[in-house]
Design a protein around this nucleic acid. Sequence first.
DNA 1: AGACTTTTAAATGTCTGACAAATAGAAAAG
DNA 2: CTTTTCTATTTGTCAGACATTTAAAAGTCT
Lengths: 241, 241
Amino acid sequence: MKIDPNSSADLSAQIAQAIRDAIVDGKLIVDERLPSEAEMADQFNVSRPTVREALKRLAAQSLIRTQRGATGGAFVNRLSFPDAYAQQITTSTLLLSMNAVSFDTACEARYALERACAPLSSQRRTADHLATMRAEIHRQQQPGLTDEAFCDSDVAFHRALVDGAQNPVLSYQLAGAVEGMQPLMNMITFTARSRNQIVSLHTAIADALERREAAAVDDTLKELSEYTQSLARDVMAKRAR
Amino acid sequence: MKIDPNSSADLSAQIAQAIRDAIVDGKLIVDERLPSEAEMADQFNVSRPTVREALKRLAAQSLIRTQRGATGGAFVNRLSFPDAYAQQITTSTLLLSMNAVSFDTACEARYALERACAPLSSQRRTADHLATMRAEIHRQQQPGLTDEAFCDSDVAFHRALVDGAQNPVLSYQLAGAVEGMQPLMNMITFTARSRNQIVSLHTAIADALERREAAAVDDTLKELSEYTQSLARDVMAKRAR
DNA sequence: AGACTTTTAAATGTCTGACAAATAGAAAAG
DNA sequence: CTTTTCTATTTGTCAGACATTTAAAAGTCT
């Protein structure tokens, strides 16, 4: 592992990249201990603060963890699904909020991905998944619910639908698509009428899933997608006036 | 923005989180300049190196960029699609390589998501997308091609298919699913026969896409998914002996 | 000998102060 | 008015120090 001291890039960025490459390429394996900060400073011919900045970059991506004390140090971290979820959601949220992505585009992506889960979820969903969905539907019918709480419940409902596919990789990918859209969804004001419409579609989805009818789930999701987009268009139109 | 000096967490991690929250919540907007490192050190009552470690954490997630010089400083970065791609791919790759995710699970997720793009891509693909796919098919038929180069071309082919949907959010999400699987795919040895089979399926997909027949694309993708999984099972079986 | 306490060494976390390098704007020179 | 030079600001890097945490080694008592 070498760095170029004459490069225009920051030394800490170069060091971080070198270590990152080593991890991705499997030269450093999970739970392996990196040399101590002082040793690395020697190796790379830089100071300890520079090495530390590099390590903090890696820690921010959950690639390493550090431990203090006698047998401490920096260790290659096993990237867990929850860690990956969290990063994925932050990235997706910012990507959508900072890049003038239209609601339609985001919505289309979300429902396209979600519909990909429908056949698998129909096959494999457990009673648990179904119970979660029913519970969320019930919550969505509470009268005093704020728009935000309604959206939270909506996310939880769709989460259960996705998790029903019993494929952690799929759940991980979808986490970004579904939760990243929440800030956009929160801009919509849900009237009593639109809530009822959504609840009835959710119920239709849950019913179809209970009967394990993939095609019906897919159709209803499509309907829900179109309804959501029409709601968003109404909000935009009102805001334009 | 406040931090708790008595918390067990690192000061730099706390500071990074405080700034990250401010960005996600929209309290800091794109291209806004953060205070200088010295000023932040004062504000948070910590030293400059500690502030710097916090900033490097944020830089690692592409949340900020820094500039040297008189009017320099740290600026909230607009998270670009390419940046988001890169992060997604690193995360997905590591998630798959470190977590004993079965080839079947990853493959299922990948093709489920890809099939979600098929209808959109059938509608919207341009001549360019089709040309890219044809070119990659041609490349896949070169005799001297290494397994790795074959996989690269495979990724490029599927990339074009996904991009054909003309939905950047979908492309971003799929980047992780498709490219993250590459290391797993690279473990497969592609015999001349299996390459021919894959090429013929790719050709069928391109043909169907040319005719804009979504259902045919979907069917062929399903076939390809099953064939890929059967190849992987053969490799596993051979390795077991 | 065995269990408990103390010491010690190694590592990360943090601070201070300094200098280098880049950069934009102000000041000076032509 | 244009070009050059200077200057102030800010990030990048370094060196050395001390604080804190932690596990293992050494020591002590029963």
